[in-house]
Design a protein around this nucleic acid. Sequence first.
DNA 1: TTTAATTTTTTTGTATACAAATTTAATTAA
DNA 2: TTAATTAAATTTGTATACAAAAAAATTAAA
Lengths: 205, 205
Amino acid sequence: MTKKTPKHAYIKSYEYIRDKILNGELPRGTKLTEERIAEELGVSRTPVREAIRKLEQEGLILQKKVVNPTDSDLRNIFQVRILLEGYAARYSATYMSEESLEELWKCIVTARTGTTEEIMEANEKFHNIIVQTSNNPFMIDIIDRMQSIIYLFRKTVVYYKRPFLIDEHEQIYKAIYHHDGDEAERLMKEHLQKDLDFCLHYFQQ
Amino acid sequence: MTKKTPKHAYIKSYEYIRDKILNGELPRGTKLTEERIAEELGVSRTPVREAIRKLEQEGLILQKKVVNPTDSDLRNIFQVRILLEGYAARYSATYMSEESLEELWKCIVTARTGTTEEIMEANEKFHNIIVQTSNNPFMIDIIDRMQSIIYLFRKTVVYYKRPFLIDEHEQIYKAIYHHDGDEAERLMKEHLQKDLDFCLHYFQQ
DNA sequence: TTTAATTTTTTTGTATACAAATTTAATTAA
DNA sequence: TTAATTAAATTTGTATACAAAAAAATTAAA
């Protein structure tokens, strides 16, 4: 019965635009105008403007247009992700709690048996648990900001069923389980590099 | 005839607030109100509001208040900086141009002989050249966003004359000069770690 | 035809108004 | 006194209006 109505118009606008970009309804390169979106949402331009600014900061909108990342952009974004998540994986090997470890394992099980939508979620959660374990809100925030763009790639990886995706997750899990930080970092970096290579292959649509 | 508005009001507002925070005129913890700043600047609330949002994204303002970072915040921010600049240093050892290398050396010379203000600049430039060499706009952007906060610390390091600051720069320079990526990364990480330790010591104001 | 200059339309940036929410101050009850 | 309530004030979020700037369409000149 409780409908999750965002309290503020600018949050509503933000989520509306973001979701339209992420699910492809607003194709890359589309020019956004405050007026039109405001009309669609039945709000004024003021909150829409704020939402667009936020999306610009997140890199999903560039000069009023939906981003259209080049291969080089993808490589650059992943380079950062590899550094940060690699560190988080190493850190996790020492500091991850029992509960998180169990959660991590559940992600692997779900990803093996679930629907595409469940795999998407499990995949996201797997990485999230590790990132959260870094216990560095500043780092978490940076990765959060990348999340929207990362989502665009995760979709590719899951939808086109990249081979060994879950096997790699399992290997990472084991390294963390055995408190082997070096190995966890190495495997995570390798894993993300493969994601990147796979995406680059499929990204010339 | 051109108007007396060379810039946009929201840019003017952004720079005004940022500078006031960075030079200490707005002490940490100060609550900012859109109205007052708008009045001070002789503009309306609309552009001020936009500026504050941007500063919030950059981490200089948190919940309408000037940030007041804790020790733990400093550690977290530096952890990210160490990762990214460490990578950039390693990369620089292979890819830095002759011109940049010369510029880098100039920074060291200036820092040895210059005024405090010149040392500040040379210090900033030294790190900037290395970051730019990473040739990753995405990474550069993240470090840029941290720049305002980093500035707060750089001031501490230079003002209180942290020992061996420039010697460490010289060591890093040499490692890059000799294309020793491993060493460049190691030294850069060590260098930033010392900056952090020093700041933590002086930061109980 | 293309190119340049012009007008028209759209879109943005800013100011302003006002209600809702929040904070602060004042008042009352314990 | 302190705690709880209420009233006043400040501050925020949003809508709206309008001028400046940018983009698109039109016309004139090559």
